[in-house]
Design a binder for these strands. Structure first.
Lengths: 232, 232
DNA sequence: CGTGTAGTTGATGCTCCTCAATTTTTGTGG
DNA sequence: CCACAAAAATTGAGGAGCATCAACTACACG
């Protein structure tokens, strides 16, 4: 949940362990004892939760600099999974807690990190409530550019179904939306992972309001556009 | 965001101010300088955010014992509004911060409160993603019973549109759902505010899975297809 | 080569929203 | 206390957005 960054671990003067994971590996699983806190050195991960009926909910994608793994209770409430080859640095949660007990400065850093996490989580709840699929995915593509782009080229570490589970959509909707954005020449995918933003102004506009984006009609354009109403 | 409870304020030995509000009064508004943190003594409030196009988003309902108003930055990011006659206790945010700087125990209490707020916010984001209107409202009615019931009778301090803005639904959907629950004799409303839970078992069941609830049963045939399967 | 996984595309329909009309409740002044 | 206006809540019809189901393509890997 909470972004325990490298600066915090340095302030605590804790012993750091280096870890390495391959795509698909779990750093920890739901229900496991929460012994460590982690920060991402290189690579990409996601925090997820399994729901009834084979659904998954992805809480967060994690990139270099992000922290995760801190729990209030004794056990992890989520699962952390590597998306690519990933290197982490870990420190003992108990040692961190013990250090915070006598070190007011450290405790205040932790407080600030947790308060920030709460704000971010509330913002996200807001996003999920009111934005359409197109708005959310446009926003997502913009954010991934900020974090991942190399000379304008973005290499997505996650699959379509990760994006779907992050927003509570289906893979079909994600696919259709991305296809529509390509047809409009707003983005361009070289393969399934690599893309370039061609029209950032329109993408930004879509991220804030997709109401004038005629999503389905664009998809149906090759064939005749049927506006005929369904019979009751 | 963060639940700064009375116990925390007591630990900080801060000067406490007593405040009183009438229904509709704002405790603070979006953009105002964040000078104080508050705990609810009596009454009910909500934290909300105004969105484009006359939409509102209610982040949280607040009842006796709940804390609110703490901000990371210098200004409030939300608005806090009284729903009923309300009494609050307030303390200076700066004084709290200053006390935490030298008091590691206090700083750790603040950290725990913030970490808890982050967990709650993440849970809520999850709720909003995957649950239907019926599931969310059933859950809501159960939670209000826990916090507000007096001898089995619940007196809702909020309007229908507050509930709608809390879940990102419309008042019409909230109204239809509540009417359906009454029709099924699961709950019973005396007036718009006061209700009694008549069949808690079924309400609990609906809160976790409303797929077999024949919601539009009067108008439409029930569907036997459940949402959310993903199997080849 | 088959087999499996990821992704795309199409047809159909459920859930909830929008708009509009109506009823009920609340608040105010005579 | 009632009359009246304003606000809140309910009800109905129809449509938008996304899910579901199904079929198909593309690619990886033994």
């Amino acid at each position: 949940v909470i972004n325990i960054e490298g600066t915090i671990l340095a302030a605590a003067k804790l012993k750091i362990i280096d870890l390495s994971y391959s795509p698909g590996d779990s750093v920890y699983e739901h229900g496991a004892p929460a012994h460590f806190v982690y920060t991402v050195d290189t690579g990409a991960l996601c925090r997820l939760r399994l729901l009834p009926e084979d659904r998954r909910s992805i809480l967060q994608f994690l990139f270099p600099g992000d922290g995760f793994g801190y729990e209030i209770g004794r056990h992890h409430r989520d699962t952390a999974q590597a998306l690519t080859h990933t290197k982490l640095r870990a420190a003992s949660r108990e040692a961190l807690r013990a250090a915070a007990k006598s070190n007011a400065r450290l405790a205040n850093l932790l407080f600030a990190a947790a308060a920030n996490a709460a704000v971010v989580a509330e913002e996200r709840a807001d996003m999920l409530r009111f934005r359409t699929a197109t708005e959310q995915i446009a926003q997502f593509l913009l954010e991934m550019e900020v974090r991942l782009s190399i000379r304008g080229q973005i290499d997505l570490p996650m699959r379509r179904y990760h994006i779907a589970d992050y927003f509570g959509l289906t893979v079909e909707t994600v696919s259709r939306t991305i296809t529509a954005l390509q047809r409009e020449k707003i983005i361009e995918f070289r393969d399934r992972a690599q893309y370039v933003i061609r029209d950032k102004r329109r993408l930004r506009q879509l991220a804030s309001d997709a109401s004038d984006f005629e999503f389905w009609s664009i998809l149906k354009r090759p064939s005749k556009v049927r506006r005929g109403r369904r019979q009751p």
